[in-house]
């Protein structure tokens, strides 16, 4: 269906250019290569921030060509933006394009999000991406033999931390239920649940159920107080 693909190309390019940040991020480029010289991802992947800007200037075909693995190679360090003599922001362009890929549920986004479900679940419920119980030895075998130790007696070791808010294992700190409720509202209003749903309906359901359970429990608690 060549027509569909052409339409998609065109729409992606227009969405990119309609982003209020776009014209701050893409100004002009003389192929000097300073950005790529600083780029960590360029050393390991077929990725160059210079090419990101060149592709934006070249038009929709070349932008579309980046929507696969290309945009996911960037490490988001923003070295490129800091050093560009034109004040372009290639890392910022990548962030916009990732947003578009996710919003449209593109293949590359689905692939990237797959192993991400635990992080998404944590962040969307607790507003913490990382929790002590995430560092499981089977998930991080390359982190060495001390990781299993850290998981042993986790609760006790967390109790020993002198910061009272940190004595938790399923979130990085104890997040008040009212705070979780607020985060839920923000994510709902800003369309974040929709993004997850497009890419992974099953996960979206799990997250929403989990959050709603917590929120419902909180609301019931509040009602009791009154």
């Amino acid at each position: 269906m060549p027509d569909d693909k052409d339409r998609e190309k065109h729409e992606i390019f227009e969405e990119l250019r309609a982003d209020p940040r776009y014209h701050d991020f893409v100004r002009g480029c003389l192929n000097c290569g300073v950005c790529t010289g600083w780029c960590p991802s360029h050393r390991f992947f077929d990725y160059a921030p210079r090419i990101v800007i060149q592709n934006c200037l070249a038009g929709e075909d070349r932008v579309y060509g980046m929507m696969g693995e290309y945009i996911w190679a960037c490490a988001q360090c923003f070295s490129c933006a800091m050093v560009c003599p034109f004040n372009n922001n290639p890392g910022g362009v990548v962030a916009i394009l990732r947003e578009i890929a996710v919003r449209r549920g593109m293949m590359s986004a689905k692939r990237v999000l797959k192993p991400y479900s635990r992080v998404l679940l944590k962040v969307m419920t607790f507003g913490n991406q990382v929790s002590p119980d995430m560092i499981q030895p089977d998930f991080f075998p390359d982190w060495g033999p001390k990781i299993p130790w850290a998981q042993e007696d986790l609760e006790l070791k967390r109790q020993a931390i002198p910061v009272p808010t940190l004595r938790t294992v399923e979130s990085a700190w104890k997040v008040a239920e009212s705070t979780m409720n607020e985060l839920y509202t923000i994510n709902k209003e800003a369309g974040i649940f929709d993004l997850v749903e497009v890419n992974d309906p099953g996960l979206a359901e799990v997250i929403e159920d989990d959050v709603q359970d917590k929120v419902a429990a909180y609301l019931a608690e509040e009602a009791k107080k009154e």
């Binding site: 192929n31 000097c32 290569g33 300073v34 950005c35 790529t36 010289g37 600083w38 780029c39 360029h42 050393r43 160059a48 210079r50």
Partner: peptide, 11 residues
């Protein structure tokens, strides 16, 4: 000295 040879050799 680090940079990108933008014609030939890359980084």
């Amino acid at each position: 000295v680090k940079g990108e040879d933008t014609l030939l050799r890359g980084p």
